Simulated scan of single mutants.
Amino acid sequence: MKELQEFSKTYQKNMNWEIKNGSYETTKTSLLNNYMLLTTEVAEIAEELRKAFNLANTFINEGMDEEQAFEIAKDSIKKELGKELADCLAYITKFANYFNIDLEESFYAKMNEIKNRKNKDVSIIKK
């Protein structure tokens, strides 16, 4: 993850896509703009999932087995979904780099925090 963040920092600098520093207003505007771009990319992930569910439902309505239908649908969105996830990761690393956050360290710390919570959400999977 450290290599990814370093690559991202250099890449964004070379492309002039860094979060702008300067006055408070300039920085605030840049942060908000990048936040909006991130949320747009997250919405594009939802759109890819919607496409997969719609395609799976079409196949199921045509008589295909649910598992097979969903596997085909997942495969059909894999490439585009990967692009959208990469876009999100680019914005996330941009924010992390701006605030000098080590994403790898933060990720593992957060997973440990969740693991040790007393009031964990429990999901029940019915088969």
Rank of each mutant, 00 (worst) to 15 (best):
M1Y: 05
E3M: 14
L4N: 08
E6V: 15
K9W: 03
K9Y: 05
Y11L: 13
Q12F: 04
K13L: 09
N16R: 11
W17G: 07
K20D: 11
Y24H: 13
Y24S: 11
K28Q: 14
K28Y: 14
S30W: 08
L31S: 02
L32G: 00
N33I: 02
N33Y: 01
L37W: 05
L37A: 14
L37F: 11
L38I: 09
T40M: 14
T40L: 15
T40V: 08
E41I: 03
V42L: 15
E44A: 12
E44R: 11
I45R: 04
I45G: 05
E47T: 13
E47R: 08
E48Q: 12
L49N: 07
R50H: 10
K51H: 08
K51G: 08
F53K: 12
F53A: 15
N54G: 15
N54R: 11
N57I: 04
N57V: 02
F59K: 07
I60R: 04
N61E: 15
N61P: 10
G63T: 08
G63W: 06
G63F: 09
M64C: 13
D65Q: 10
E66Q: 15
E67P: 07
E67R: 10
E67I: 15
Q68H: 08
Q68D: 12
A69K: 02
F70V: 07
I72K: 03
A73I: 01
D75E: 11
D75L: 09
S76I: 02
S76M: 07
S76Y: 04
I77M: 04
I77F: 03
L81I: 06
G82N: 03
G82K: 00
E84T: 01
L85F: 00
A86R: 00
A86V: 00
A90V: 00
Y91D: 02
Y91Q: 03
K94M: 11
A96V: 00
A96C: 05
Y98V: 07
Y98A: 04
D102P: 01
E104R: 01
E104P: 00
F107N: 11
Y108M: 12
Y108H: 11
A109M: 10
M111C: 09
N112E: 14
K115F: 11
N116E: 13
K118R: 12
K118L: 11
K118S: 12
K120C: 11
K120E: 12
V122Y: 09
S123P: 02
I124G: 05
I125P: 04
K127W: 08
